[in-house]
Amino acid sequence: MPDFAGYIRQLRQKQRLSLRDVAQKTGISYSYLAQIEQGRRNPPGPDFMKRLAPVYQVTLKDLLRAAGYLEENEPSLSDEQEVEMAFNYVMNDPRYHSGTRMTGELTTDVKRFIVEMYEKATGKKLLPGRSE
């Protein structure tokens, strides 16, 4: 846990956020976040990681790997799974609102388009295998 604690603290500091800022942006309690950063709690589950990733400007996959939920040599995700993870990242980013008010069924192609627009608007690469 100490490795994850230091990693998550560095991510927060890199964004120049206080623990209270992160708590406010994610809805995760200040005390729980503090305990994670101090190494007194296990890394949070994937649901909390989904809320932390956009605030810390990292991918969900990066957080899951740092927490030990994913192994480096784990089989690759399918293209559809990569798009779904990237799309969830975009939808959970509190600073980004373009294209997030869609209704009806969203196909993988529509989700990919929204992610690509996010990548262009933010300069953050979420989908692998393409140059920026």
Rank of each mutant, 00 (worst) to 15 (best):
E84Y: 13
R40C: 04
L64F: 11
G129K: 01
I8T: 10
E84R: 08
S29Y: 01
V115W: 03
G27V: 11
R101I: 13
P75N: 05
E72Q: 04
Q38C: 13
G45A: 08
S76G: 08
K120N: 10
E82G: 04
L19F: 10
R130W: 04
T108E: 08
K25W: 11
P44C: 06
R130Q: 00
G129L: 02
V90C: 00
Q57H: 08
V110Q: 06
R65N: 06
Q35S: 11
S18P: 07
V58A: 04
L33T: 14
V22I: 12
S78G: 08
V83P: 06
P54L: 03
L60P: 02
E74W: 07
E37D: 06
K25A: 09
Y118I: 13
K61F: 13
Y30W: 09
A5L: 11
T59G: 05
L33F: 10
G45N: 09
P75G: 04
L106H: 14
G45S: 09
R40W: 11
L126Q: 01
D62T: 15
M85K: 03
T122M: 02
R65Y: 08
T59N: 02
N73Q: 11
R12L: 12
P2D: 15
I36W: 01
F48I: 12
G68W: 06
L127W: 02
N42R: 12
N92C: 03
F87N: 01
T26K: 00
G123H: 09
S98Q: 12
R51M: 12
E74Q: 14
M1L: 09
V22E: 00
G45V: 14
V115M: 01
Y89T: 12
D21S: 06
L127Q: 01
L127Y: 05
R20V: 15
Q81N: 06
P75H: 04
A34K: 06
K14W: 07
Y7P: 05
K125N: 07
N73W: 08
L106N: 10
V90H: 02
R101D: 15
E37F: 10
Y96Q: 01
Q15Y: 08
E84P: 04
P75T: 12
R95E: 13
P54N: 01
D3M: 00
T100N: 04
R16K: 15
Y32V: 15
M49N: 07
T103E: 09
E74R: 07
S18M: 07
V58Q: 02
S78E: 03
F87Q: 00
R9Q: 13
P128Q: 03
S78N: 04
Q35N: 09
P46T: 15
R65E: 14
A86I: 09
E82W: 13
P94T: 10
M91N: 08
F4Q: 04
D62Q: 14
L52S: 11
Y96A: 00
A23M: 06
Q57L: 12
T26G: 00
K50A: 15
Y30T: 13
G129F: 07
E119Y: 03
S18H: 05
H97M: 05
F48N: 12
M117K: 09
